[in-house]
Design a protein around this nucleic acid. Structure first.
Lengths: 236, 236
DNA sequence: CTATTGAATTATGAATTCATTTTTAATGTC
DNA sequence: GACATTAAAAATGAATTCATAATTCAATAG
């Protein structure tokens, strides 16, 4: 856990082929976001700038910029002259976030049904078919990957930049929870069924139905996650 | 338009009774957000840090922090080593933002119908009644104020922090457009009718209906705004 | 022994300074 | 005259330094 960035330092080994590395502030916000979502920085914990600067080996300037971003995303809370604390992201938080995601995906479905190109629909149907194969092969990582690709494709097909952006920001907050969710076989198969109906509604360009299906799909995912948490208590 | 912050400077006139003034970065992000939404910084325009620092009389450090926040909100776009440009917020952008807001308010309505306390419902009904009086008195500013109070109250009654937060961020982006929208008398009266139905659905705790009404209400508002823009072209 | 005050320490806010990248302009060559 | 190369200028990225507010802790009064 004592990783260091070591950017701009004395690393003469990596030739650095002009691949523009992102600014420190971006790297830091990405890393901090990851840490918060992973639980490395528990909710309610006070963040001391100095600690993080020595931990990452950077100065306070880019770190503070990164913290502003995380605050705008709601992951931390900045209190003037008094530092920052990590926002609490508990089970209740999942119950807050998923309905919002479900609502946004409903809109995405309604829009995509109207605006999606035939090629986009084709692609989503193909992805849905591939999804079935992963269930047969019990390939969870692949399932997760394709599942996300489908949702992203529907969002993209909505053609609404604000919607895409908002969804991406909020979805990032539950990324981890979504991944370690689809445990049971029964839920897995049911999710596959739901995806089949989703693809079908899209093919028929039935916006109302597609929206409703996506909404229910996300809420069902929330249920399964809550069940898994309650049953296993598989906290890292 | 050449306002200056002049905070922490040599203003011996204002004794400053310990009322904690917000950090410069916050003041700057608020001010820049306002400027962008007001059109003082047109979409597509390149932002030079130096220009703004001399304009506001601050150093680059807090300004850059403010810009990170605006970038997280989607109001500007940061390009590494190449500065920032103001995101384009055109008519199409309104057409993007309002459906998202409508979708979020639909969810708010569905949740509020279940979770709102009787006192909250009471208050919203009272506000709705007051709204009618403003129409009779042709008091536009008051109408706008109460209207927003109603929407905020429904959001608050949803009890979903993520929803409240997300809505607030996005709503801020069209604040101005909403204000200069309700021009025509006919639209005004129709909006009042809609609010009556909204209050009614809430009183009956009919979530599906309340959600649908709020969704339609926002989409109707978008239509009226687009009509007004197309007709009058009343750009400041 | 407890509570309060005040100095010392520590943390955050903001300006300045240094480093790197990009852009601009100029010069030279073809 | 057009294009490429390169030096100068300007802008952004990041570290350091200075200023101010908050916290800690010891000393003293009650």
């Amino acid at each position: 856990m004592s990783q260091t960035l070591d950017v701009g330092g004395e690393n003469g080994s990596q030739p650095d082929f002009g691949l523009a590395r992102p600014p420190l502030a971006v790297q830091l916000s990405d890393m901090l976001r990851e840490m918060i979502l992973e639980g490395a920085l528990p909710g309610g914990e006070k963040i001391r700038e100095k600690d993080l600067t020595v931990r990452f080996g950077v100065s306070r300037t880019p770190l503070r910029e990164a913290m502003k971003v995380l605050a705008a995303e709601g992951l931390i809370e900045l209190i003037p002259n008094r530092g920052a604390i990590v926002s609490r992201h508990s089970v209740e938080d999942l119950a807050d976030v998923f309905p919002v995601l479900a609502s946004l995906e409903r809109l995405a479905g309604e829009l995509a049904a109207v605006r999606a190109t035939d090629a986009e629909i084709e692609r989503i149907c193909t992805l849905t078919a591939n999804l079935g194969q992963t269930v047969e092969g019990a390939n969870r990582p692949q399932y997760f990957k394709i599942n996300q690709a489908i949702h992203d494709a529907i969002l993209a097909a909505s053609g609404n930049e604000t919607l895409i952006r908002t969804h991406a920001t909020i979805a990032g907050r539950v990324h981890r929870a979504r991944y370690q969710a689809n445990l049971t076989k029964s839920r897995w198969e049911r999710a596959l069924e739901e995806h089949g109906r989703i693809a079908d509604a899209l093919k028929k360009r039935d916006g109302a139905r597609l929206g409703a299906l996506l909404n229910e799909h996300m809420l069902a995912k929330l249920s399964s996650i809550l069940d898994a948490l309650q049953a296993g208590e598989t906290g890292t």
